[in-house]
Design a binder for these strands. Structure first.
Lengths: 130, 130
DNA sequence: ATAACTGTTAGACATATTATATAACAGTCA
DNA sequence: TGACTGTTATATAATATGTCTAACAGTTAT
């Protein structure tokens, strides 16, 4: 999977990497059990310091997305089993309150917003039948 | 409108205030043309430094949500006219890519996600008929 | 054993963000 | 004049982000 980093973005580099890996898992671009590049390799590919990659991998490990073997490096968790915890649902609800409020005020209709959701979910469903 | 600030949250105080004001505008809890508290008053009410409030008001002014009169203070822009600019749509698309990907992986169905959107939008529609 | 890979840790360093604090300035209005 | 507005200037501090160099510990193949 190719990572596209925008260095001018306000979004921190480590956050961009993390987001794209999670998206990759959801779309199937990254398969469960698949190896990720080593911290030094990925850092070198992107052109950043390897500590930034360590931060990403550690957070992904902490949240259960990946597992880390001393020998073989980092891989997408083959037994991925994240759930909609109350804490997560609260964060999501809060985020969507803010996001929909601004979208509404900018003239996005409910249908337009739902269309964005459906368009994204369609990318995920295709691999659900695997 | 009462502001609820979580000081333990990872979300910066100024961001929480900003979010809640925008939500207030969308739901109608804050009417266009309505006065907001002075920087010192709001800071005192919440128990924070007034510079933090200045930051919020300046950003809201910058984005067009409020206007500032030297004499009467800050009010919700009576001629509020925000639009879905290409820049905004790009930010929204990127945010929703990340958000839906994690939601999907945590087991939220498309229908559950859309339900959150509809629930929020219903709060906005009620005042649309005013 | 040596070399070449893994991830990890320890520092030091620089910069930006977030937030507080004190003080002063300029305009408005009763 | 006094009491409000928003604004500006400093100083300070904690935290977040990112880079850099160096070393350590485990694994694997030659």
């Amino acid at each position: 999977m190719l990572l596209q980093i925008q260095f001018e973005s306000e979004i921190p580099i480590y956050q961009q990497i993390k987001n794209q890996i999670i998206r990759g898992i959801a779309t199937g671009a990254l398969q469960q059990g698949e190896d990720l590049p080593s911290v030094r390799q990925l850092a070198s590919d992107i052109g950043i310091n390897f500590h930034t990659v360590i931060k990403v991998y550690n957070q992904l490990k902490q949240e259960g997305w990946v597992i880390i073997h001393r020998k073989s490096g980092v891989m997408i968790n083959p037994d991925l089993n994240l759930t909609k915890t109350p804490e997560y649902m609260e964060l999501l609800d809060d985020l969507m309150k803010t996001t929909t409020a601004e979208a509404f005020m900018r003239g996005l209709t409910k249908e337009e917003f739902i269309n964005i959701i459906e368009k994204n979910y369609d990318n995920y469903k295709t691999q659900g039948g695997k």
